[in-house]
Amino acid sequence: EQLTQNVLKSYHETCQLRAEDLQRRRWDTFSREEICAYQKKSMEEMWQRCAGRITEAIQHVVEFAKRLHGFMELCQNDQIVLLKAGAMEVVLVHMCRAFNADNRTVFFEGKYASAELFRSLGRAEDLIGSIFDFAQSLCALQCSEPEVAFLSALVLVNASRPWLQEPVKVSRLRRRLELGFQLLLRRTRREGLLDRLPPQGRLRALCSQHVEQLQALRRRHPPALLDAFPPLYRELFA
C-alpha cells in the first residue's frame, strides 16, 4: 500500500502535463497554416525541436525515478543504466495520455498535431508512423492515471537491462512494484490489462528506430549539427 502511494505520488509530482488539461484540449488542433509552417521548417530545425520536447519529457522521467522508493538506493551505475535504457520508453508510454486516438493527433508545442505536421523530419517519418501506431494501441487499453504511473515505474525498473552491476537488487525492487501493480489491478477489476499490454520488445524497437534515424541524420550532416541539440539528448542518444 505504501509503495503504491509512493508510485502514484511520484508520478503526480513529476507529471509534465495534467491529464485533465490534455483531455480538455484534445480537439484543439493545429490549423492548416500552422501545419504548413511546420512542414516548411528545415529538417535540422524540426529535429532540434523534437529533440527539445523529448528532452523536457525525459527530465520529468528522471525526477519521477528519483522519487521512487528504492531507486536512489541502487548504485549510481544502475540508476544511470536504467534511465539511459528506459527514459525514452517511459516517454513513449506517457504519450498515450497526450494522444487523441479519434483523430490520430498528439499534443506537441501547445496543440494537437497529426503525423503530417512532422513531414520535414524526412526519412524519420516512418518512425513517427510507428510511434503513432504504438500510442494508438496503448490508448485502446484506456489506462487510468494510476496504471500509467505503475507502467512507467515498471518500464524503468527492469532487471534485464544490460550492464547492471546489481541486477538482484533491481529485480527485488521490480518484484515489489509488480506486486503493487497487481494489487491495484485486482482492486479495480482490471487484471486483464496485463495480457493486453504491448510486448516489451515493441518499445525497445521504437527506441532503436529513433537512435538509427538520429545516426542516419548525423551521417548526412556536418558534426556541428548536434551542437544545437540539448546536451542531455546528446548524452542519451548520440
Binding site: 528522471v62 528519483k66 536512489m72 539511459k84 546536451p231 542531455l232 548524452e235
Partner: peptide, 14 residues
C-alpha cells in the same frame, strides 16, 4: 561519461 544524468540525479528533489 554521463555527466548530465549524474548531475540531475544528484540535484536533490528539484
Amino acid at each position: 561519461k554521463h555527466r548530465i544524468l549524474h548531475k540531475l540525479l544528484q540535484n536533490g528533489n528539484s
